[in-house]
């Protein structure tokens, strides 16, 4: 069954070229096929770094001085990326909060799709692509399935395309714990209600995350919005490719400036000291009420697990988005 879905970059021992050209003819019913495709999405997200992130990390690796703890860390990171892909096993044991973003045409059955996602998550947990990672906050119980109140996190969006697109982010606890929200003005930092104030609090967040968020890190930032939407929109910025450019010139400039400034702090990979503290900063904004000015920062670790697929009419994977 697993051979039915074309793997993104299959390990040669799992799938030969022959297999790709001639998929196993066994037909799955539409639901089972969707679960297979979702399972493959989870597998690839958990075990492979997206190309844009890998490229940025390798560039950072080449910039660290040789024979330092920073280059030692970056070398292990590279080995880990290669090994996880080769073995088809999780890059990081903390497979995180499982966050789905589903973009669908009008007339789509969201509740039914949710059930298929849950089934795929349980299967992925059984196969070891996801750790038993979801705990009841009241009882402390871990059902071992990754299902429970509010988990997995699933967000639906209607779009004008005919196909269903699914994006997935696995967000580990270490980097989620250093994600944060500021309320401007912040007098201790001298941060006012303007872009300069935003710049200050974001840099402060990176300084405070040192050692804890598995750097070099990547940021998603939202300026404004209420507390909840602001945090959510910050996280959604992690869906942007690292090499894209913000369409708003002010934010494009600020993104670049923040990365450059944070890399002057000398915190480095893992907080060992070094040149690369931050690999990316992606920013958005949302309207606020006059009385509030929140800046939300979603910190992502170097093990930036994000992938996406477009499904065809048969619910098989048509294209990979990253």
């Amino acid at each position: 069954m697993t051979k039915k879905v074309p793997a993104k970059r299959p390990a040669s021992k799992i799938l030969s070229k022959k297999t790709i050209k001639k998929p196993v003819p066994k037909k799955l019913d539409p639901k089972a096929q969707t679960i297979e495709s979702l399972l493959e999405l989870i597998r690839v997200t958990s075990t492979e770094i997206p190309d844009d992130v890998a490229k940025t990390l390798m560039k950072a690796r080449s910039q660290e001085e040789q024979n330092t703890t920073a280059s030692y860390a970056m070398n292990i990171i590279k080995d880990n990326i290669d090994l996880a892909k080769f073995k088809s096993q999780p890059l990081c044991q903390d497979t995180g909060t499982v966050i789905f973003f589903v973009y669908h045409p009008p007339g789509f059955f969201q509740n039914a799709f949710k059930e298929l996602i849950k089934k795929a998550v349980v299967k992925a947990t059984q196969k070891g692509y996801l750790r038993q990672n979801s705990v009841n906050s009241l009882t402390g119980e871990n059902a071992g399935t990754n299902l429970g109140e509010g988990h997995p996190s699933i967000h639906f969006y209607e779009h004008n395309k005919k196909e269903v697109e699914i994006k997935l982010v696995l967000k580990g606890g270490g980097c989620e714990n250093v994600s944060t929200q500021y309320s401007l003005p912040d007098t201790t930092l001298g941060a006012g209600r303007d872009l300069e104030g935003v710049r200050k609090v974001v840099i402060d967040a990176v300084y405070k995350a040192q050692g804890k968020g598995c750097g070099p890190g990547a940021l998603g930032v939202c300026i404004g919005g209420d507390r909840a939407d602001s945090a959510y929109n910050a996280k959604k910025q992690l869906l942007r490719k690292l090499d894209d450019k913000n369409t708003l010139p002010d934010l494009a400039k600020l993104e670049k400036e923040i990365v450059e400034t944070c890399n002057k702090l000398g915190i480095g990979p893992m907080g060992f000291g070094g040149k690369t503290t931050l690999i990316s900063c992606k920013m958005t904004h949302a309207n606020r009420v006059p009385a509030s000015f929140f800046v939300s920062i979603s910190y992502m670790c170097w093990a930036f697990r994000r992938q996406g697929v477009v499904l065809d009419k048969k619910n098989t994977i048509k294209t990979w988005l990253y």
């Binding site: 990171i77 080995d79 880990n80 090994l83 996880a84 890059l91 071992g144 598995c214 670790c301």
Partner: peptide, 25 residues
């Protein structure tokens, strides 16, 4: 190295015991 779960798992040669399993694996 945080996040280097595979490199580190490779270095584990055997699992010799499991205690306090009731806390979850």
């Amino acid at each position: 190295i945080g996040g280097a779960a595979q490199v580190l798992a490779e270095k584990i040669k055997s699992v010799d015991g499991l205690y306090l399993e009731e806390f979850g694996l």
